[in-house]
Design a binder for these strands. Structure first.
Length: 455
DNA sequence: TTTTGAGTTGTTCGA
DNA sequence: GTCGAACAACTCAAA
């Protein structure tokens, strides 16, 4: 009886798993997860969530999961040789690191006449396949999403009948690093539970509810998508034609769009997609580092910003609307490089994904695909009043402000800040003007919007 | 080939 | 308080 290895990476589930189906078709399956030293970049919250996912996967494979720690290009061929397996199946990875890693593993396996077989992808539509009529990639979201929907996707497939191979030596399951953050439960079963809870409740009003951090009606599926505990096909199959469903489908399309952009332009992970923006002045000296510290600690004196940063540290997650507000504040009010914010988010987010995170930051900074117009600068006060009208979100995460009433959105206005809460670290109107001046210098424009004197 | 309309998430000003 | 206009310039994609 022949056997093969199924190397799990960002596909930590057994249902709707094309690579697993392919592996099962060729005999017994050795389920493998490699604890790659490169994971050190992931940050403790994401690693703790991963550890939970692996415990669940171990259980789901009837304790057959093999853990090996080390560089995959050494570890995977070594295991294949050790147990006499010719083919290693895996889901294709489209990120810059994953592609390099898989090329190295493939080469090392080939040297011993073995092979890495890549089947399926973490996306409904494989990155690189949505193209314009002339074969070029789309550079703006809306036409991409139309073409993406037109291509379509398969229905989810059931998990295969298979026999797990037991008795292979394994390193211990990785320990979850100690984190203060309260994290969601990992694994495929938790992902399905969350999906069905969302489908039964908040999805119906997603188009309006999604913007309200106080109501918290987003899906919370991002960590599960990040590790493939859930495939987007498994969500899309439940979506119909309503406004709310369309809206949620569009959010999944954004994830696929950014994966496509990163696949085609791997450099855009950390470099401006629009290199004309390289001329943009950003602050990087010692005072900038102090401003960065206040931002990341949730001590800016802007309640909605501080609430978001503290939610991030307390839970490894931040509401999407607040991600935009905090990101805009870092870029437009503090004039720091978007890369600093992106790095911080990746270090703390349980759902941190290079493509979605960094291109989202580029969108805010106006350096990316589909960039926000230069004049779209979030006003932290307006955003707070509009999307957290009663201040409930702020009170939940900024305990110093629990007793503050109607002026919770700007508690220092007209008087001193409440005990233990800092005064605003900058004046928004001033920094908005400064941001507009810097953009004008790059683009050669002479006027700025929104001021009477400039008309 | 040329033209035309549109483009995630906003803010401010002035009527 | 509400509402429309203005805030650039460019790319993309369909007509």
């Amino acid at each position: 009886m022949s056997r093969s290895i199924l190397w799990f990476r960002r596909d930590l589930r057994l249902d709707d798993h094309p690579a697993l189906i392919a592996a099962a078709a060729s005999g017994d399956v050795v389920p493998l997860f490699v604890v790659d030293p490169a994971f050190a970049d992931a940050g403790p919250a994401r690693l703790a969530f991963l550890a939970g996912c692996l415990r669940e996967l171990h259980r789901a494979t009837r304790n057959a999961l093999v853990i090996r720690a080390g560089d995959p290009s050494a570890v995977v061929p070594a295991l294949a040789a050790e147990i006499g397996v010719d083919t290693v199946f895996a889901t294709e990875d489209f990120g810059p690191y994953g592609r390099r890693r898989d090329a190295a593993v493939s080469e090392a396996l080939a040297a011993a006449h073995r092979r890495l077989e890549l089947v399926g992808s973490p996306y409904a539509v494989t990155p690189g396949t949505v193209t314009r009529d002339n074969g070029q990639p789309y550079a703006v979201f809306t036409p991409f999403s139309r073409a993406w929907r037109a291509i379509g996707w398969d229905e989810p497939a059931d998990g295969p009948r298979l026999r797990w191979a037991h008795g292979v030596d394994s390193d211990p399951l990785p320990e979850a690093p100690g984190v203060d953050a309260e994290l969601p439960p990992g694994g495929e079963r938790a992902a399905q539970d969350r999906l069905h809870a969302f489908l039964d409740t908040d999805l119906a009003t997603y188009d309006v509810g999604r913007d309200r951090p106080d109501l918290d009606e987003t899906s919370h599926l991002s960590p599960y998508l990040r590790w493939g505990c859930l495939h987007p096909r498994q969500i899309l199959t439940h979506l119909g034609r309503s406004r709310a469903h369309d809206r949620f489908r569009a959010e999944l399309a954004w994830r696929e769009f950014y994966a496509d952009v990163l696949f085609r332009q791997p450099r855009s992970a950390w470099w401006n997609l629009d290199d004309r923006m390289d001329a943009m002045e950003v602050d990087t000296g010692a005072p900038a580092k102090d401003r960065m510290a206040s931002w990341s600690a949730g001590q800016t004196g802007f309640p909605i910003v501080d609430a978001g940063m503290r939610q991030l540290h307390a839970t490894g997650w931040m509401h999407n609307r607040v991600r935009m507000v905090t990101a805009s504040f870092l870029v437009k009010d503090l004039h720091l490089p978007w890369q600093w914010g992106a790095r911080h988010f990746l270090a703390h987010l349980v759902d941190g994904d290079l493509a979605s995170n960094n291109h989202g930051w580029q969108w805010v900074a106006g350096t990316g695909t589909d960039a926000a117009p230069y004049f779209r600068i979030f006003n932290p006060l307006t955003q707070s009043q509009r999307f957290d009208p009663e201040g409930d979100y702020i009170r939940r995460w900024v305990p110093e402000l629990t007793g503050v009433g109607d002026d919770i959105h700007a508690p220092s206005a007209g008087k001193g800040p409440p005990l233990g809460y800092p005064a605003p670290m900058v004046e928004h109107a001033t920094e908005r003007e400064e941001a507009l001046r810097r953009y004008a210098r790059v683009t050669g424009r002479t006027t700025t919007p929104g001021t009477a004197s400039s008309r």
